[in-house]
């Protein structure tokens, strides 16, 4: 799936670029983005180490497992594959909370941590599990308490009430989350029903 998207973006970009006389711009964009990606990675490096380090302490002291135990009743519908006190649950909860509070810097490292834990439970290491897909969907449609970035942009643009969109953001993101979760559950059921006949 990602193969085709990647192929599509690049090929469409190059073809449109050549035919609209932007061949040079497109080439420059390719090279600039490649070096830009390294800056993004290096920017992530410090926070990533900070959070994986902190999470290691939280795991050793049993804090993560305790959080996992507390969150289990809520999350067991979404993540049926996870045991009661599995560290993945703890990392998932902390990632979702970071997203909810708009702490982007913390959310990504915690999310990757959760993926590492989910991967330990994965029998087929190159294929996503249902739990992983559900986790990704929750992350892409993250519900945020205060959409701080947008509020700052609106305030910079001279809005009379920059924070007024908070309610519409809540409505839109909660609808998106519900749609995503429903889609993930439905597609997972569809996959399962489609896979069984093949195995027999």
């Amino acid at each position: 799936m990602l193969d085709y998207i990647w192929f599509g973006l690049l090929v469409l970009g190059f073809i449109v670029g050549i035919f609209s006389g932007r061949a040079e711009t497109v080439t420059k964009a390719a090279i600039d983005s490649a070096s830009g990606a390294v800056s993004v990675g290096i920017g992530l490096l410090g926070v990533m180490c900070l959070w994986t380090g902190m999470m290691a302490i939280a795991e050793k002291s049993g804090l993560v497992q305790r959080i996992a135990g507390l969150a289990r009743p809520v999350l067991k519908l979404l993540f049926p594959g996870l045991a009661r006190r599995h560290p993945a649950l703890g990392a998932i909860v902390m990632n979702l909370v970071a997203n909810f509070l708009g702490l982007g810097n913390a959310a990504t490292p915690l999310g990757i941590k959760a993926m590492n834990e989910l991967q330990k439970l994965n029998p087929k290491k190159d294929t996503a599990t249902d739990d992983m897909s559900m986790f990704l969907v929750l992350n892409t449609a993250a519900v945020q308490l205060v959409p701080a970035t947008v509020i700052a942009l609106r305030s910079a643009a001279g809005s009379l009430n920059p924070a007024e969109i908070t309610v519409t953001v809540w409505i839109a993101s909660i609808s998106a989350t519900l749609a995503g979760v429903t889609a993930a559950k439905a597609l997972s059921a569809l996959c399962k029903s489609g896979f069984r006949p093949k195995r027999r």
Binding site: M1, S175, A184, C191
Partner: peptide, 24 residues
């Protein structure tokens, strides 16, 4: 997220995420 753990076959994840996006 998938790159971090080396997942190549993402199955239906993108479709579900795009469905959420369209709804938003």
């Amino acid at each position: 997220y998938f790159g971090a753990v080396g997942i190549k076959n993402i199955r239906y994840t993108l479709i579900a995420a795009l469905a959420a996006d369209a709804v938003s």
